[in-house]
Design a protein around this nucleic acid. Structure first.
Lengths: 197, 197
DNA sequence: CAAAATACTTACTAATTAGTAAGTAAGTAC
DNA sequence: GTACTTACTTACTAATTAGTAAGTATTTTG
């Protein structure tokens, strides 16, 4: 008997392959840089197959952000992240951004959508706000604990510092795209230098 | 006798009106969010009139960035900016970003183009790199003098700090668009708190 | 086994896109 | 005043876009 609800990281179905490719293109080239035709050709299906799974591009975009939000929550609550001391939680966050930089100079979700934000469908805007809000709240908590235990050092409130650090990281990935990885690493080193007591 | 090469801030010609509107739309909505049709309709001319002045959208985009680069150089070399002490030069920079935030939540040029950078024509990419490079070099110099005179305080090299601060400011305008002006002001306050000795 | 849902393809529409070619009206040069 | 330039408009093309409707093969369900 084959497991009917198999996890199967082996062969993702079309629905997932569409979402994966669209997400890659969003983070690597921008939301307006790909069409249903591009996706279809690259996946070896017809454009209408994509409309079947994601009736409109709005739906597809919203699905991308919604999945990233689910991933964020899952990551944040992972024991190997949640149980870490603050300084290492910060390093775990940096590691996520490092992965983005290494994968075709991907920007983060926020950096990919912020400039075009006003042209995005309302549900996508709402999901992105939630995504950014939850990530900021998480980091604020990490910073608060870090400051209390003396592991992290900064002036001002944890939530103000959290907004600033996340904004800097989002921008750093954009700078990497415009120039090269060098300024990205410069910025992250600078953040480490300032934050790690 | 009327001055033939009058400065005439009174009535800009079509060429300039196109550039002004395209720049506004670029900073307020994104580069892919407007077409020659949109511009033409808003300006009361036909799309072909825009092609006359800027044959392709690439030309128009490049003209926007080139003008911003000219403006940056002019601003930087203005006596009322160049002759200021470092802390006030930094405040002058913040004031530019404040103006962006107040004008329809405009992002800066860099923030508007970074995400879509790979889809931009090569001349536009080159101009944007120059723009960002020169702005960073200017701020690095300001920070170096500020640190030497004790007016500004930071760890690490002036150029590393310059890259970090500009990246943070670019990101801050994007955050303002996604949420509201509040986080933008939080970030700038945080920068002031950290930098001003 | 029959009905129904799933996952598509084929074939199409209507709108929008950047861009071009040819014509024109008004001003400038000599 | 004739030639030329400037600054457009009109009218068009070819490509691409998102999206739809109808049909079909395969799988699932009762």
């Amino acid at each position: 008997m084959t497991t009917p609800a198999a996890p199967a990281a082996l062969a993702p179905d079309t629905r997932t392959r569409i979402l994966d490719l669209a997400e890659s293109l969003l983070l690597e080239r921008g939301f307006n840089a790909f069409s249903y035709q591009h996706l279809a050709k690259a996946l070896g299906v017809k454009p209408a197959a994509i409309h079947y799974h994601y009736p409109s591009k709005d739906d597809l975009g919203t699905a991308i952000v919604a999945r990233q939000l689910r991933r964020l929550r899952k990551w944040r609550d992972l024991p190997r992240v949640a149980d870490l001391p603050p300084a290492e939680q910060l390093e775990a966050l940096f590691a996520v951004y490092d992965n983005h930089a290494r994968q075709e100079c991907r920007v983060c979700l926020f950096g990919a959508l912020a400039a075009d934000f006003r042209t995005l469908p309302a549900p996508m805007q709402a999901e992105l706000r939630t995504f950014n809000g939850e990530l900021t709240a998480w980091l604020a908590q990490v910073l608060a604990v870090g400051k209390a235990t003396g592991a992290l050092r900064f002036v001002g409130s944890p939530s103000a510092k959290a907004v600033q650090v996340l904004t800097t990281l989002a921008g750093a990935l954009q700078v990497a795209r415009v120039h090269d990885e060098t300024p990205y690493h410069t910025i992250v080193s600078q953040l480490r230098l300032e934050l790690l007591a």
